Simulated assay, not measured.
Amino acid sequence: MRFSDAVRFLWSEDTKVSRSMFPIFERYTRGADPIIRLVAIEVSEVTANVFFRSTMSAALQLQQITQTEFRYFGTRHNHIENTHTLHTPASMQIMKEIEVSEEVRQQALELIDVAFEYFTDLVNEFLVYIKTHSYQEPFAKVYESERSLTSV
């Protein structure tokens, strides 16, 4: 894929929700209490774990069919996700012992609600993309829009 096509895809309507992730998490974490930052990380991690467990079978089948390793959706990334040092028994015990003020607790709960709503929208964006694009031509709409621009 040409760089211009990749940029066109990244800024297309197909990736609108994906692009909104950074501003959403930045709004909640910039200058926030470290607990809020930890909550943002944990929400992302637990969502990723559910996503990768749900897609692992399909990714492995696709790898076998195409004889191509899908590093992000295959076993390599899943292994990395499941071996973070944050989830060691010692780290988990430390997190259990942290006292949190009611204000920080309410902020964390709001972040959790917003983040899971975002991740639901993100997975729905993925689903729409999968239903409207083929594996053989995953970026066909990018090329179609380019052709229409060159005919002007």
Rank of each mutant, 00 (worst) to 15 (best):
Met1Tyr: 11
Met1Pro: 14
Met1Ser: 09
Arg2Val: 01
Asp5Arg: 01
Arg8Leu: 02
Leu10Ser: 06
Ser12Leu: 04
Ser12Ala: 09
Glu13Asp: 11
Thr15Tyr: 04
Lys16Trp: 06
Val17Arg: 06
Ser18Gly: 05
Ser20Ile: 02
Met21Gln: 07
Phe22Ser: 12
Pro23Ser: 00
Pro23His: 09
Pro23Asn: 06
Glu26His: 10
Glu26Gly: 01
Arg27Val: 06
Tyr28Phe: 12
Gly31His: 05
Ala32Arg: 01
Ala32His: 06
Asp33Lys: 01
Pro34Lys: 03
Pro34Asp: 08
Ile35Arg: 11
Ile36Leu: 00
Ile36Arg: 03
Arg37Thr: 14
Leu38Gln: 14
Ala40Gly: 05
Ile41Ala: 00
Ile41Glu: 08
Glu42Gln: 03
Val43Arg: 06
Val43Thr: 13
Ser44Ala: 09
Asn49Ser: 03
Asn49His: 08
Val50Asn: 12
Val50Lys: 12
Val50Arg: 14
Val50Thr: 13
Phe52Tyr: 07
Arg53Thr: 10
Arg53Asp: 09
Ser54Cys: 14
Ala58Ser: 08
Ala59Lys: 01
Ala59Asn: 02
Gln61Ser: 14
Leu62Pro: 00
Gln63Ile: 00
Gln64Asn: 13
Thr66Val: 01
Gln67Asn: 09
Gln67Thr: 08
Thr68Met: 11
Thr68Val: 11
Glu69Cys: 12
Phe70Gln: 10
Phe70Asp: 03
Arg71Val: 15
Phe73Glu: 04
Thr75Asp: 08
Thr75Pro: 05
Arg76Thr: 06
Arg76Trp: 15
His77Glu: 05
His77Asn: 10
His77Arg: 12
His79Lys: 09
Ile80Gln: 07
Ile80His: 08
Glu81Asp: 11
Glu81Lys: 05
Asn82Ile: 03
Thr83Phe: 02
Leu86Thr: 13
Leu86Met: 11
Thr88Met: 05
Pro89Ile: 03
Ala90Asn: 09
Ser91Leu: 03
Met92Gly: 15
Gln93Ser: 15
Ile94Phe: 05
Met95Phe: 05
Lys96Trp: 00
Lys96Leu: 11
Lys96Met: 13
Glu97Gln: 15
Val100Ser: 00
Val100His: 07
Ser101Ile: 10
Glu103Phe: 07
Gln106His: 09
Gln107Thr: 11
Ala108Leu: 14
Leu109Glu: 06
Glu110Pro: 04
Glu110Thr: 07
Ile112Val: 15
Val114Asp: 15
Phe116Asn: 08
Glu117Gly: 14
Tyr118Ile: 14
Tyr118His: 07
Phe119Val: 00
Thr120Tyr: 11
Thr120Gly: 08
Asn124Glu: 15
Glu125Ile: 08
Val128Thr: 13
Tyr129Val: 00
Thr132His: 04
His133Leu: 01
His133Val: 04
Ser134His: 07
Gln136Cys: 02
Lys141Ala: 04
Tyr143Cys: 03
Glu144Ile: 07
Glu144Ser: 12
Ser145Asn: 00
Ser148Thr: 09
Ser148Asp: 11
Ser148Ile: 14
Ser151Cys: 02
Ser151Leu: 12
Val152Gln: 12
